[in-house]
């Protein structure tokens, strides 16, 4: 046997593009997760404050007035 064929190299750039897209995807996913965590944290804090405020604003019934 003495035949040596040649073939075109497969281009590398689609793989590079795919890796970049994955990296960008991962970056945005993490960023989104962080944003969601912050938002949830803020909501929790705000809720706590609101509850505290509600408690604070609720007039304490004066037991003496019932009499």
């Amino acid at each position: 046997m003495a035949e040596i064929k040649i073939e075109k190299k497969k281009p590398v750039w689609p793989w590079i593009l795919l890796v970049l897209l994955i990296l960008v995807g991962v970056y945005f996913f993490w960023n989104y997760q962080d944003t969601m965590d912050d938002r949830e944290q803020n909501e929790v804090e705000n809720n706590s404050i609101e509850q505290m405020d509600e408690n604070y604003d609720t007039p304490v019934e004066d037991s003496t007035t019932q009499y």
């Binding site: 035949e3 040596i4 064929k5 040649i6 075109k8």
Partner: peptide
């Protein structure tokens, strides 16, 4: 010369001698 053709290589089924 194959070295000049940066977009070509020896086919995967054949030996690079």
């Amino acid at each position: 010369n194959l070295n000049e053709l940066s977009d070509y290589k020896v086919a995967s089924d054949d030996p690079d001698v």
